[in-house]
Design a protein around this nucleic acid. Structure first.
Length: 591
RNA sequence: GGCCACGUAGUUCAAUGGAUAGAACGAGGGUUUCCUAAACUCUAAAUAGCAGUUCGAUUCUGCUCGCGGCUACCA
């Protein structure tokens, strides 16, 4: 914040004056004062004693007295060991609150005209979305909101892995056992419908394997012996050859899947401005490989495969094109990256992809950089850890517990149950009640996922339902609803307040925290980390509840105090709503 | 084997190299003639281990142990 900057500068000026030394602003560390000590901000004086050549206490005392004298905002100070605790004047904080509440775009930064392309979700079209996609979508969507607030021009894109052997397995099982059924005829959501045929294929392949002997026990390996696998491979070849019948079925099934996904996207509240399809890009990329060969950056190995040698960068040799001239995964990613550069000419390209692919993205970025593509510097892999069950990684065969749609309906069900238990829906229409369950249920789920730092794995126990108390989405939502109740009662007659007030500790803490919001948005954008925002909101809500409990608002002793507390409540409500929006979470007016 | 993450109360998560490591859930106690008790409040409870750098280390370095991922002409 500006204030911290000011304090640093004042400190530097004082040191210049007292000791004739220019100190770098970075050497002044300022923290929020720990609550067991008196003060708002704390300057750590240890790093400064080398210059002052005095004890930490003396240095702190000197700096404190000078700041008190000159800064105009410091009301008092105390020194404990090497820590200088500064208390700013009540007037400063009251004016700060005014400033914030008069700023309609508080927490949103002016447009910086930098274009960001953000890829997230990246589903396969042979099975429904699972809990990993949920984390991905929440991170991706939230990151786009945060970057927008930080001033970036964000375009969200999706990538569909819509080709390959897996989808052929679904198609094959459908042809054999599907009897021309459809999602419509069966009432099954499209992505689940297609996923069921994928499961069917696996079942049948296992049945077939029972007739074999001399297996390795590794299904991935053994399945290759089955006729079902061979047929799927044949189908893939037909697809690649453009066989009309195969392509038609493929399109039909892909459309079902995408319709199904769209339903989930809508519930989750996520969207995309552009879709990319591997089926359209998997053949591209050879030009880029050729370009690399021309420039002598890539090499053709004796067996004919094209590789990039990344051993100087601490990585390995990586194959970019098979010896038979066909593409591998990274070939198309090189192409897709190039395509997006041409489509958007972006400054940054963010990939929200699980950390299993850390290596892949290192290679991708390096390969493009070696080709001299400057825009590749803007590639950032927002890597996140997997969601695991207490017993380890969710396997698709564990089925229901990891399915995204099941997870969502479960959390909505719990929201309904708990809300009814608490008798919170008096006066709600059926429609409004449904809306509330959705708000709260999704709020719980989204917050649960987003409050955790992306690089940390999330342990999710499907046996224990997601919590609605404590450090949760509903807690924050409840705080917002409380504030709105106050605002409804306060009406319009209480605008503005005089800054001649004495602040209590909670009020002061609340204003300080509100004034940290801008920093939080910026930090979250810089670190690509929505959990910064999630943790910020929790502290804000927690402080507000404390304030609400300790002090009367509508029944405050004086009219001015009342106006001030209403303004403080109002602003807290606004910031909660804004910040929750950055996480893609709605907040209710009543709950 | 090599490379990359991670390891904090019983559990799930916090902590720009700074003070007595914060919360939540769970456990045990308290608060409702008072603006929504999905709240507030008190108590017990943790840095995997060993060295090193530093005035100061959960944070940086090295080693050990543990867990996971990557190590494909799969995606």
């Amino acid at each position: 914040m500006i204030l911290e900057q000011t304090l640093k500068q004042s400190t530097a000026a004082i040191f210049k004056e007292e000791f004739g030394v220019d100190i770098p602003l970075d050497s002044v560390t300022i923290n929020i004062t720990k609550k067991e000590h008196e003060g708002d901000y704390t300057i750590v004086v240890f790093p400064l004693i080398k210059i002052s050549k005095k004890s930490p206490e003396q240095t702190g005392e000197l700096l404190g007295s000078k700041l008190l004298e000159k800064s105009g905002v410091v009301g008092k100070y105390n020194v404990i060991k090497g820590f200088l605790n500064l208390s700013l004047t009540d007037a400063y904080w009251l004016n700060r609150l005014k400033e914030i509440s008069e700023n309609n775009t508080y927490g949103t930064f002016p447009a910086n005209h930098k274009k960001v392309v953000l890829e997230y979700c990246g589903p396969n079209t042979n099975k429904p979305l699972h809990i990993g996609h949920v984390r991905n979508m929440l991170l991706g969507f939230s990151m786009s909101e945060i970057l927008k607030a930080a001033g970036y021009d964000v375009t969200k894109v999706n990538i569909y892995n819509d080709r390959g052997i897996a989808i052929c397995k679904s198609m094959l099982a459908y042809i054999r056992y599907g009897n021309n059924s459809t999602p419509q005829s069966t009432g099954i959501k499209g992505d689940h419908f297609v996923g069921d045929w994928y499961v069917k294929w696996n079942e049948k392949a296992k049945e077939e394997l029972e007739t074999f002997s001399g297996l390795t026990g590794d299904f991935d390996e053994d399945q290759k012996q089955t006729t079902l696998f061979k047929e799927a491979q044949e189908m893939l070849l037909k697809w690649e050859a453009g066989d009309a019948e195969t392509v038609e079925l493929w399109k039909k099934m892909n459309d079902w899947v995408k319709e199904g996904f769209q339903v989930t996207y809508n519930v989750m509240g996520v969207d995309f401005q552009k879709d990319y399809f591997e089926s359209e890009t998997y053949l591209l990329g050879k030009d880029i490989v050729e370009e690399g060969l021309q420039k002598n950056i890539f090499k053709k190995r004796v067996d004919g495969a094209v590789i990039v040698d990344l051993t100087p960068d601490g990585l390995d040799e990586k194959v970019l094109l098979r010896s038979d001239g066909t593409s591998v995964y990274i070939t198309q990613d090189l192409a897709t990256a190039q395509l997006r550069h041409e489509d958007f000419n972006m400054e940054k390209m963010i990939y929200v992809v699980a950390n299993e692919q850390d290596y892949h993205f290192k290679v991708l970025k390096l390969a493009l950089q070696k080709l001299g593509k400057k825009w590749a510097d803007g590639i950032y892999h927002l890597s996140y850890a997997l969601v695991e069950s207490p017993t380890g990684r969710f396997k698709s065969r564990e089925g229901k517990t990891a399915d995204a749609d099941d997870l969502i309906s479960e959390v909505l069900r719990i929201a309904e149950e708990k809300t009814k238990e608490l008798g919170k829906i008096e006066g709600f229409t059926e429609e409004q009640a449904k809306e509330l369950y959705k708000t709260i249920g999704l709020g719980a789920l989204k917050y649960f996922v987003l409050r955790v730092n992306p690089y940390k794995k999330i342990i999710f126990n499907p046996e224990e339902s997601i919590d609605f108390h404590g450090h949760t989405g509903p807690f924050v939502q409840y705080t917002h609803a409380r504030i709105k109740a106050i605002m409804r009662k306060a009406g319009e007659t209480t605008k503005g307040f005089e800054t001649l007030l004495w602040l209590s500790a909670v009020e002061r803490e609340l204003i300080i925290h509100l004034s940290e919001y801008e920093n939080t948005v910026q930090a979250a954008a810089e670190k690509y980390d929505p959990s910064e925002v999630a943790n910020y909101i929790y502290t804000l809500a927690k402080l507000y509840n404390k304030f609400y409990h300790e002090l009367p608002i509508l029944n405050a002793a004086t009219e001015n105090e009342k106006k001030f507390r209403i303004a403080l409540s109002n602003e807290t409500g606004i910031v909660i709503k804004k910040a929750m929006k950055l996480l893609g979470i709605e907040v209710p007016e009543k709950m």
